[in-house]
């Protein structure tokens, strides 16, 4: 069965890239390493039988948000100075916090009743999502448009004030 090694590959890609994001001394490398994390997450969505979310992840996060983050990094002052752009602070507090979070996640992992789904049940989710958006979730669907409008205008107005 090819699914298990594939899952391992995506897990390795996600965790490995996330480690680079966290530990790289240069924030530019951290930004580029996010590519692997986003891509691996898309693979996980596929394994969870949500094809639409997976494609959206690649389309929006890999294709859009990552570019935005890289542009934001390049807008930063003194970007070539790694110690000011990506400092490592409060190590002990961070370690304690991470360890507590780790215990919390392990608790959830061991406490959850995991449902194993047959592979035959993997069906495309695009049609149900389309039907739901047009019928029972129509209002949220239109509100998304207004939220996007607010984001569009807000971004433009904020930038307009900066550039003079």
């Amino acid at each position: 069965m090819i699914a298990l090694p594939l899952f391992g590959f995506f897990a390795l890609l996600t965790v490995g890239s996330a480690l680079i994001v966290s530990f790289s001394r240069s924030i530019v490398y951290s930004g580029f390493a996010l590519l692997g994390t986003f891509f691996g997450a898309a693979g996980f969505y596929l394994f969870l039988s949500s094809d639409f979310v997976a494609v959206t992840q690649v389309l929006i996060y890999v294709g859009g948000v990552l570019v935005l983050i890289l542009f934001a990094i390049m807008l930063t002052n003194k970007i070539e100075d790694a110690t000011t752009s990506n400092p490592s602070l409060n190590r002990i507090a961070g370690a304690v916090l991470t360890f507590v979070l780790f215990l919390f996640l392990v608790g959830i992992l061991s406490g959850t009743d995991w449902v194993v789904q047959d592979e035959e049940k993997f069906a495309s989710m695009v049609t149900p999502i389309g039907n739901a958006l047009l019928s029972s979730y129509l209002l949220p669907f239109e509100v998304i448009s207004i939220a996007l409008l607010a984001a569009l205008l807000g971004a433009v107005v904020l930038v307009r004030r900066e550039v003079r």
């Binding site: 859009g64 948000v65 570019v67 935005l68 542009f71 984001a151 569009l152 433009v156």
Partner: peptide, 8 residues
């Protein structure tokens, strides 16, 4: 940046 934001 603003073009990338519009794109997203």
């Amino acid at each position: 940046y603003i073009i990338a934001l519009l794109f997203i």
